[in-house]
Design a protein around this nucleic acid. Structure first.
Lengths: 233, 233
DNA sequence: ACCTGAACACCGTTCAAGT
DNA sequence: ACCTGAACACCGTTCAAGT
């Protein structure tokens, strides 16, 4: 649509004269294919070779787009948070805004298999992560918190979300044997009488109600925010 | 000290007649060496081959003690929580008991390089993890909480601790180049004016005060517990 | 300018054979 | 009973050479 003299296009794609062979893949396509492959086979089986063959390219080619596998994973992590900083519904109280943002991030991490592991392993600092954090902190500031408290509170919640999603996905993709072994270990431990307080731990191992656990945790965290904000709800 | 007819020794080591060659290594020695190696080189460089050579053994030998590398990592994770369930000082209020237990787990995860990553990657269900969880839940129950609420609250806190330690160790062992690049990305982002609420985020990237962040988070979580316990402090 | 093909220095895991 | 030595099927990364 935009001709070669379009100043905006020239700005976003500086000095891009298509001399030589046009590229068969680009940054975006690699990331998309990598996330698709991740969802199919999991992080442990996500290899550069498999990704290359999914893109119909030789392995070495990928290193023209990402200097290292880590860099690719970092880009994948950033991409996962796409859309998390969309505007919130206008009529929400601040506590509900915090809950909504938390749910968004959890959903984003759960969207792809091992998403939480990918995100946790990387120090993402791209626009998606930054604008999400910025929005989260902003919601808290609007409730009357100081910026530094809002920052700490935000990262407390984000770390809980990551920790929770990590556990959730570990259970989701554990082999049936591993799961049965774990359940058995816990059951015999409880039956031994040495751990009287673990009676309610079984659903945690079998992963039946992670949604409830997550909502409980977020609500607990929001409650802990109370004293810091002047606008109590 | 205990002779061959000692009934207790016979119970802990059933049918152990030292015929054939005595073993040069055992479960415990492998775990200790693996944790030492982990601390030296980090999780990515912790290979079965390197571990074998640290123990002066061939690689294949290790598979006589741990069926898979995962099993070894699981045993390492369990071992890391040794001592976390020691009795608490008798004069602590319940909220301080929660804080003390949280600090213990954090310290345990931080003791070895990439400890949090090892622990997070595994679904540990050994005696250390179980008795620690049991104790944590027990402390909350003593404050008047119901067991199911205490269980959910405990795992909310534990998942925060893991998420926090994960981040902390990622920063601790990041290369100077990566750290500088991250800091630069955040700084230019803040300077652009698009992220007005990220002004207090720099110490989080450079990792100057993780202790303060951790204490903030735990206190926030304890505050969130308030309504669930009948014994407010 | 972009991609191929081949190589380098590794991995986890298995297993016959030795002692 | 325990360990060795060698192999199998992979890895991430690099780089000359082709088009």
């Amino acid at each position: 649509m935009s001709g070669p003299s379009d100043p905006l296009a020239a700005h976003t794609q500086p000095a891009r004269r298509p001399r030589g062979r046009p590229p068969r893949i680009d940054h975006e396509r690699v990331i998309t294919a990598a996330l698709e492959l991740l969802d199919d086979v999991g992080l442990d089986a996500l290899t550069m070779r498999r990704l290359a063959s999914a893109l119909d390219v030789q392995v070495g080619t990928l290193y023209g787009y990402f200097v290292t596998k880590r860099a690719l994973l970092s880009a994948m992590a950033e991409s996962m948070l796409t859309g998390c900083a969309e505007p919130l519904a206008p009529n929400l109280e601040w506590a509900d805004q915090v809950v909504e943002l938390s749910r968004r991030m959890r959903r984003a991490l759960l969207r792809f298999r091992d998403g939480a592991r990918v995100y946790a392993g990387i120090h993402a600092a791209g626009p998606n992560t930054l604008s999400f954090s910025n929005m989260f902190i902003g919601v808290m500031c609007a409730s009357g918190m100081r910026v530094d408290d809002a920052t700490r509170a935000t990262f407390t919640i984000i770390r809980f979300i990551i920790g929770h999603a990590l556990e959730e996905q570990a259970v989701a993709h554990a082999s049936d044997d591993d799961l049965a072994a774990d359940l058995d270990a816990v059951r015999t431990a409880v039956d031994s009488g040495d751990y009287p307080n673990l009676s309610h731990i079984a659903p945690l191992i079998s992963g039946t109600d992670f949604n409830i656990y997550f909502e409980f945790g977020v609500r607990m965290l929001v409650r802990g925010l109370g004293d810091l904000s002047s606008a109590r709800t």
